[in-house]
Amino acid sequence: MTRAATLVAPAPRTAGQPSLPRRIVADRNGLIGVVLVGLLVVVAVVSLVHLGQDPLAQNRTGQLAGPSGAHWLGTDQFGRDIAARVAAGVFASLRVALVSVGMATIVGGLLGVLSGFAGGVLDAVVGRCTDVLFAFPATLLALALVAALGHGWFNTAIAIAVVYTPIFVRVARGPVLTVRESEYVKAGRVLGFSRSRLLFRHVLPNVGAPIAVQVALALSWAILTEAGLSFLGLGTQPPSPSLGLMVSDARNFFPDAWWTLLFPALAVVVAVVGLNMVGDGLRNALDPRRS
């Protein structure tokens, strides 16, 4: 039994190293990313509890007012508080991003792991389906799905999830194949370990890393896509606050009322930059060859 135990050693992971979150923060880009994303999450949470201004409250006298003590980031054409609307918009963006990427990760990750591990017909079918979905440019597929499903944040989330599912299938399947062909899993098979044990003990720990990197990138793409769809009038509908819609509204008042455009745009940029940097940090933390 000791022999078997050494043959089927746990999946090789870098032992004796600091934990993953610590390594991400140790990476300069990772740290900046975590700070930026953390900032937005705080903003989103604050918007939930409506500290300060109501994002929907109109004000007929204070329309298109610049940043001031009362309205830190100014007001829009209906006199609504931009700061409150940006915060609510950030919340809406993050909600769509988290829900869509969550769905894509779970569905895509599971399909990828299972098809890679099982091989055969399941693998062939899943592979063919992902190929077909990959044949659509991502933005176009999201648009077509939104066209079919209709507006609203949840439909937007579903559309983005469908676009990203095949990516997670691929990301999860690759390492599964490598692990499946590796000596310790082969040896485990010879020794008659059950498939589920091999799957959970040896395969899953190895797919976590590439999926984590992809999640960060997917979140940033989801935020950009949600904002873009809303800008085109296909995502979040007025009067709900959305960063894309705010930029779209601001078109008519720019550059005079620059604050109507700058702040929602800045929120998107901060989110995308932050998530990309978290992705970089993750990649560096997970790959010992880069440093």
Binding site: S220, L224, A227, G228, F231, L232, G244, V247, S248, A250, R251, F254, P255, L261, A265, V268, V269, V272, V273, N276
Partner: peptide, 12 residues
């Protein structure tokens, strides 16, 4: 360049 959305650049 990747993070500033196209719709913002286009609008501006």
């Amino acid at each position: 360049g990747l993070a500033v959305p196209e719709f913002v650049v286009a609008t501006v």
